[in-house]
Design a protein around this nucleic acid. Sequence first.
RNA 1: GGUGCUAUCGUCUAGCGGUUAGGACAAAAGAUUCUCAAUCUUUAAACCGGGGUUCGAUUCCCCGUAGCACUACCA
Length: 520
Amino acid sequence: MDERRVRVRFAPSPTGALHIGGVRTALYNYLFARQHDGDMLLRIEDTDSTRFVPGAEEYILEALHWLGIEIDEGLRAKKTKDGKIEIESVGTHGPYRQSERRDIYWKYVEYLLEHHLAYLAFDTPEQLEAKRKEIPNFQYDATTRGLMDNSLTCLNGKERVKNGEPFVVRFLVEPDEDIVVHDLIRGDVTINSNILDDKVLYKSSDRLPTYHLANIVDDHLMEITHVIRGEEWLPSAPLHVLLYRAFGWEDTMPQFAHLPLLLKPDGNGKLSKRDGDRLGFPVFPLEFHNPKDGSVSSGYRESGYYPEAVINFLALLGWHVSGDQELFSMGELIAQFSLERVSKSGAKFDYEKGKWFNHQYLQMRSNEQLAEEFRPILVEKIGEKAVKNIGQEKVAKIVGLVKERVSFVSELWEQCNFLFVAPEEYDEKSLKKRWKEDSPKHMKELLAVLKAQKNWSYEALDATVLPWIEAQGYGLGIVMNAFRICLVGAARGPHIWDITGVLGKDETIRRVETALRKLQ
RNA sequence: GGUGCUAUCGUCUAGCGGUUAGGACAAAAGAUUCUCAAUCUUUAAACCGGGGUUCGAUUCCCCGUAGCACUACCA
């Protein structure tokens, strides 16, 4: 029935860092758009001039860019030559910032006013506050609007506006009407108009509409076909339907899909910034420095997550195909995503699973790639020069030895530091357990064997040393563990011949000698 | 308080009237190895309660309960 080109939008407000739940909303919009060969728009909903946070817009766009959520129309991030993020506006339905669309909205407000679908209200915040105190469960609606100070009760509204009196425009909601919202995820949701209040659509104070009006006007003008947004919007969806009706746009009204919320991992409630701080995980895609309150919020990017892992993790928080597949590339998500398979109930945010996803994606990386990603950390630890001397090829080999035990590149160093620098001290616990009375003797003898060893390959060492240990009547575990302590400084690490292979004969011998000196 | 949405292992979920209720994360145990991890195997773990409908309900309907969301001149 709807032959129009699919057009969806992600419409955040620049009030701070983009919450991870918002990221998921953006992702689902994106997947839907791509699947239907449609357009993904980004619009900034900055109709609350008091809540604007500088840098938030750039942040949002950079975050989406990092995650690979591409914007076709509206505001989007563009990388400049020096790697910085610049905002560009593309498309013919702009401007894409609501604060830049003031003049557009007023026309529509006037239309409603003229057709008696809305009215002027002059009640001050204080008066409203007083009414709320006076009448329990006060709602500005058909039952109370006659008691208030508005153009329905005063008859000289236009004059008062002309005289410069501050006002708002309220939507006139007719009572006793059942409004059906068809939701793609939940089916038909029916709400009676009696529970709706006469929403403020426009405020003269900053000459801007409120969310509801701007949203409907923009979605219509931008030819949005599907509104995919968080469940918190479901209660106001009937109001939006009424607005489409008031403008006579019902036949092109977008279809709605209200996504389940992301919940706290423990306890109940919506996932919030506080939970991240409390439980020690990021709630935002990128680190954010809030210039308004000076706060710093940690981000997935800075915590070492791969964007693919974040995407995969988020995609599965509230959506799943019928099979057992867990790992999805963006392409697979686009191919398989469907709103019908989005769950209806909220999903608790399981951070541990997020780590697991990153582990999976890290394993898929080639050793060379990982070595490249590890390089900055390595430089920081052992210096530029040392890293250069070692060479990327060797770093890649080392990384390959330990990558399967880490989930993040940042964990690599603690897994392989001993392959770059000799141990300075020896782990006490390991010594207690693995360094026996006979160990110095064993090591001295082993040293002789190693020195005599010509072929330093994994196989050759294995073929020489193991039989030697057996021939001496020593315990394999006792000798090998002591040997390991000499090389690593602790009872950990990859297979010992992998270690000797990286260290080479000279360094291996040196380390054993050092250990003998220090541990006598 | 009102209105709406929701309800399968601890968590994310599969299931779309008949199943030993499946998978993954986390947990536990074992195997393996010179160590620590990883890995592999195994185990434990769920249909919120009550009514219907039906030959038969986790599945459909109703009620209850619980959770969540909304209830601003915020989005």
